[in-house]
Amino acid sequence: MKTPLVKIEGLNVAFDGAPAVRGVDLAVHPGEALGLVGESGSGKSVTWLAALRLLPGKASVQGRVSLDGSDILSLPVREMERIRGGRIGIIFQDPSSALNPVLSIRRQISEVLALHRGMSGSEIRAEAKRLLDLVGMPDAKGRLDSYPHEMSGGQNQRVMIAMALAGQPDLLIADEPTTALDVTIQAQILDLLQQIRREMGMALVLISHDLGVVAENCDRVAVMYAGRIVESGPAATLFDTPRHPYARGLIDALPTLDDTQRLVAIPGVVPDPRDMPRGCAFGPRCAYAGPECLLDSPPLRAVAPGRRLACARHNLDLAGPKSTTPNSTPAEVVS
């Protein structure tokens, strides 16, 4: 198999002793779209912030992150800065707070072009306009002199994407890029990301709490819960036949436009990082939990080609009826 573009191995992150990421292994291959799904506090954003060394000093980060096979966690700060915004671009949920309110769009894009591409003068002007055209900004030339507050949320997100693309990245990390946007604008931005990825052959990591968004835009998906990856696999098969009870639960909890079948909620709440349950972190909320689930935190292992699962009861058949009755005893549900 080809060398992954970015490989994360045994990543652990803790804040003041509270674990946020607990042993994550993840690889992104050139040109692929990888989705990272999970609820708040699952560690999906922290994983990538840690990999790019964007966390504050009080965070303790352990593990190995490599770009094209060489470790980036131990790189000198200056070299890391060349990678961020260069080979790896990032966009966040709230574009208006990620942009500088007192600088024009031209200044902000120019900065990236000067820093990462060594451009100057007229070269910068032409390239900045080309980038705004590329992200579908209407009246790109006129917009260069605008300020973030003069534009809508969707336009600001286009500017963020243009800035991320300015460094010609091999990988774009998009952290909830459309969560703050209206539905019709969300569709525009996701469509734009797909189109750019195809044209530039760039890899994409799409971090989202919305399974629908990830299912439609990614080749491969990893589902995170309480700081761990609990299941990963090709998007189509994972959403069709989830193997982990949490992944199944997330899909059943999601309302659809096609029917009004009662939603199956996952009982309980996400565990407190300072007070993790014994054994599997999802155990207390799991309708399928058995005695073995209390023993150890199950490792993520291959269960089929391209599919990995972290569940002590990995032979469960979850394909049955959608409704699981969380209050019944596990034995009843499994039999």
Binding site: S152, T184, A187, L190, A215, F239, L257, D258
Partner: peptide, 22 residues
């Protein structure tokens, strides 16, 4: 709007992407 709603299941309608701003 209906076509833009993301869904993990199979898509039954062609997505209509609206141009322009909100």
């Amino acid at each position: 709007l209906v076509s833009a709603a993301p869904s993990p299941g199979p898509r039954r309608v062609e997505r209509v992407i609206l141009t322009g701003e909100p």
